[in-house]
Design a protein around this nucleic acid. Sequence first.
DNA 1: GAAAAACTTAGGTCAATACCTAAGTATTTG
DNA 2: CAAATACTTAGGTATTGACCTAAGTTTTTC
Lengths: 112, 112
Amino acid sequence: MPPAAQVDGIFRALSDPTRRHVLERLSRSPASVSELAQPYKMALPSFLEHLRVLEGCGLVSSRKQGRVRTYQLAPDRLKLAEDWLGRQRTMWERRLDRLDSYLMAMKEEETE
Amino acid sequence: MPPAAQVDGIFRALSDPTRRHVLERLSRSPASVSELAQPYKMALPSFLEHLRVLEGCGLVSSRKQGRVRTYQLAPDRLKLAEDWLGRQRTMWERRLDRLDSYLMAMKEEETE
DNA sequence: GAAAAACTTAGGTCAATACCTAAGTATTTG
DNA sequence: CAAATACTTAGGTATTGACCTAAGTTTTTC
């Protein structure tokens, strides 16, 4: 999978509040499907789909022991999203800097 | 709009490569619709929809002068996404610092 | 003032998402 | 081993998303 497509999937996954909430929950500790589902009034199969999306883009991983499937975070994936945002930020900051110096120059000229 | 819904929209907007590309382009300088559309083989109305999504969630703003509409970044909105990711990251890192033996075990098995 | 430029609007297809209910399949547990 | 638990699969609906073509509208330009 090309990295751009991976980033697509990660941002897509993060665009749903249920999924973000699950990630927040998992940042405290791993948890089973039913533990994760418990706060939501959603039907279980619907909720499972969210977990599948999170696992599909690599933000979480799961393992089944007996009849219980346990999910946990896979933190390295979040970096892809963070990296993109970080790059963006430095770019637009650079741009604002340029704008700044442009405005400064304007001001200089103005006061001459 | 509740902040969670705003974050939804921003992540959703970022999940499309065309839209991310447009943001990257705009981090260099403001640009007109046709300048922005030029690199893509997509029909103009389709492309415009992407711009509408970006403007809808506040990542860019636009203004029309004569027959030309010019878009520019609205950098403060990216912060909402960055902030969520940042908070997440510190939580995840805190959790990883605890180095649960459980998590270690899972990781071991995962890499098998 | 007709034609070109730069969008804009209208409307249509097709696939993917986010839900649902109902009926499975494994795994414990009593 | 029957019943309960913990998912899982199958299949259905309704909305939204990402594209398209065709036909506007509003400036500019010649």
